[in-house]
């Protein structure tokens, strides 16, 4: 998983970057809020971001507010890390749109566990997003069959979007998950038997 770290303190940045790399994450580091936001707006943004609260340029809570307003293709799990003393800091960060909050000095074991939670949530959100896409595709096919379908009153062929006339069974196969097995109904069987008998009689 790709992780972005944004902290203006070089020592804290090195510490976080080294630990997360050792835990198997692909880490990118930004030294201020503006650089962090630029990286988050790139075509394939990181799936998890750890933001210092107070940084030059955009601050951590401002970045998460922007993250929640901008509609990203895949969701980004945001953790804010800070040494702020105020009692309501965690609430402020979470209300701004952060998914989690960690105080400085951080505990490495706790940080690892919280990042793992972020990874798990991110995987679940991606799986859910894929299921929704599948459902949307299925739904669009169902809608096509629910619309007005032009059919020939005589031969029962159906006109498609390209003005071609198709057999009914071909059209349904193309626009749904339905497949056809081929048999003969008793009425048609009887008719066909009569035709065969007539042909045999003529040939004899």
């Amino acid at each position: 998983m790709n992780v972005l770290i944004a902290d203006d303190d070089a020592a804290s940045r090195l510490m976080l970057q080294s630990l997360l790399t050792a835990w198997g994450y692909n880490v990118t580091a930004a030294c201020d809020g503006d650089e962090a936001w630029r990286i988050l707006c790139e075509p394939e943004p990181p799936q998890l971001v750890i933001l210092d609260w107070m940084m030059p340029g955009l601050e951590g809570p401002e970045i998460v507010q922007r993250l929640r307003v901008k509609q990203f293709e895949s969701p980004c799990y945001a953790i804010i890390i800070t040494s702020r003393n105020a009692k309501d800091s965690a609430a402020q960060a979470l209300n701004a749109g952060a998914d989690d909050f960690i105080g400085k000095p951080f505990d490495a074991t706790e940080l690892r566990a919280r990042v793992a939670v972020g990874h798990r949530i991110n995987c679940l959100q991606r799986a859910l997003s894929e299921h929704i896409d599948d459902l949307k595709q299925s739904l669009s096919r169902v809608k096509q069959l629910e619309g007005i379908i032009p059919i020939c009153s005589y031969c029962k062929k159906i006109r498609d979007d390209h003005d071609s006339w198709n057999q009914l069974e071909q059209y349904i196969s193309d626009h749904s998950e339905a497949r056809f097995s081929h048999g003969i109904c008793p009425h048609c069987a009887e008719e066909q038997m009569e035709i065969i008998k007539t042909l045999k009689h003529r040939s004899a």
Binding site: L14, M15, S18, L19
Partner: peptide, 15 residues
């Protein structure tokens, strides 16, 4: 905090 990594600890301290 550096997961027992002395080398990392020294690099961070140097910074």
């Amino acid at each position: 905090r550096n997961m027992g990594d002395l080398d990392l600890s020294r690099k961070v301290a140097a910074l």
